[in-house]
Amino acid sequence: MNQTVDELIPEIREELIKQLNLEGMLPEGFDENTPLFGEGLGLDSIDSLELVVLLDRNYGIKLKDPKEGRHVFQNIRTMAEYVAKNRAHV
């Protein structure tokens, strides 16, 4: 089960909406390159903790250092790339 980045993008997008209760809240033009934090979607540090849990639950990836998340959670594409590279193969 080796999904490519392009296959992961819609999946992560869906999971993210579910985990962070973002249904119906995505701004116009939101895509995999829109920044998740700050000016983009405007997520906060609690969301980033929820995303850590998402990676663990769905892909078996454990982020040990919260600072690592800053790079991984830039946008959906960076998340997909990180997952493709680091997911636990079962």
Binding site: I46, L49, E50, V53, D56, R57
Partner: peptide, 10 residues
């Protein structure tokens, strides 16, 4: 004790 939701705790 694994994969817990931080929001519930907070």
């Amino acid at each position: 004790e694994r994969q817990l939701t931080p929001t519930y705790f907070m």
